[in-house]
Simulated assay, not measured.
Amino acid sequence: MQIHYLSEANSVLNHFLGQIRNVNVQNDSMRFRRNIERIGEVMAYELSKDLHYKNVEIQTPLGIKKTTEIEDRLVLCSILRAGLPLHLGFLNYFDAAENGFVSAYRHHPNNDDAFEIRVEYQAVPQIAGKNLLLIDPMLATGQSVVAVFNKLLEKGQPKEIHIAVVIAAPEGVAYLQQHLPDYCHLWVATLDEKLNEKNYIVPGLGDAGDLAYGNKL
């Protein structure tokens, strides 16, 4: 797996990352969503450098300009619900992409810290032969991404697979390296220290879905 760590070079990305973590800023849910969206825009720009392009000629009012445009057919697929603001950031840049949505969550059958991943709702277009961008803001254990990935592959084999996450734990990155094909690309805005005993990312930022959309039952 090819891994791209985007925060290693200073840019405005780190400014947005600091704001979504800051407890004095993140309690404004509208601002939190917008910052996640802006992070998605920055990540989309960086990922766009790895896509394939074709030569085109553009008619301007004064002549012809030779340039390039994206050749790949893209499918953006986010994991509900936390992935929605990040998805929008990618869609702002890849506005011609098709879109898919999948629900995945931790189910605690014994009401303790042990859990299994359940993948339920799906609304996904055809992905065979296209570039699949799987979007989820938090990569903790990695189990949700792998479960969704395996479910999506039942619909066909993409041409390329890119996974985009905002905050990752080393354990989650290692899990993806173990369970996903070598040809996948993992795009990480920033890498954190570890998972705690409840498998939450430390220092992390809390629950991204709750911060964006309010507490759930």
Rank of each mutant, 00 (worst) to 15 (best):
E69W: 06
V42R: 05
V56K: 08
G100D: 01
I36T: 11
G40A: 03
T68Y: 06
L74E: 05
R73H: 14
I36Y: 00
L84Q: 05
G40Y: 01
H52Q: 09
G63Y: 05
L86F: 03
A97F: 00
N111K: 15
F90K: 01
K66V: 12
I36V: 15
N35D: 09
G83C: 02
D50G: 05
S78V: 07
I36M: 06
N35L: 09
L91A: 12
N111V: 12
A104F: 04
I39M: 01
T67R: 05
R34N: 15
D72G: 03
P109I: 15
Y93M: 09
L91F: 05
V42E: 14
N55Q: 14
E37K: 10
L88V: 10
R81S: 10
Q59E: 13
A97C: 07
G40D: 07
V56E: 06
S78W: 03
T68P: 05
C77P: 02
V102N: 01
I36C: 03
T67P: 11
Y105R: 05
P61E: 01
L76A: 04
A44C: 11
I58V: 15
N55E: 14
A96N: 13
K54M: 11
G83H: 00
G83Y: 00
T60C: 11
A44E: 08
G63F: 07
E71R: 00
E57W: 04
A82K: 08
T68C: 10
T60R: 01
L62M: 12
I64Q: 09
L80A: 15
H107Q: 09
P61V: 11
R33T: 04
D112M: 00
I36L: 10
I39H: 00
A44V: 03
F101S: 05
L62Q: 10
Y53C: 12
Y105V: 10
R38V: 07
E37Y: 03
D113F: 10
E46I: 13
R38W: 09
L84M: 09
K54Q: 12
G63H: 00
N110E: 12
G100K: 00
S103A: 11
G100Q: 01
R38K: 15
D113W: 13
Q59K: 13
N35T: 06
I64H: 13
E46V: 10
S103H: 00
G63A: 10
L88I: 06
G40E: 03
L91V: 03
R34K: 15
H108T: 04
E71I: 06
K54C: 11
V102K: 02
I39V: 14
R81L: 00
N55G: 14
T68D: 13
I58Q: 03
N99F: 06
V56G: 12
M43P: 07
R38D: 06
R33A: 02
G40L: 07
K66I: 13
Y93A: 08
G100W: 02
V75E: 03
K54I: 11
G100I: 03
E71W: 08
D95T: 13
P61I: 02
L88Y: 02
A96G: 14
D72Y: 02
S48H: 12
P61N: 08
P109Q: 04
H108D: 11
P85C: 08
A104L: 04
N92W: 04
E46T: 07
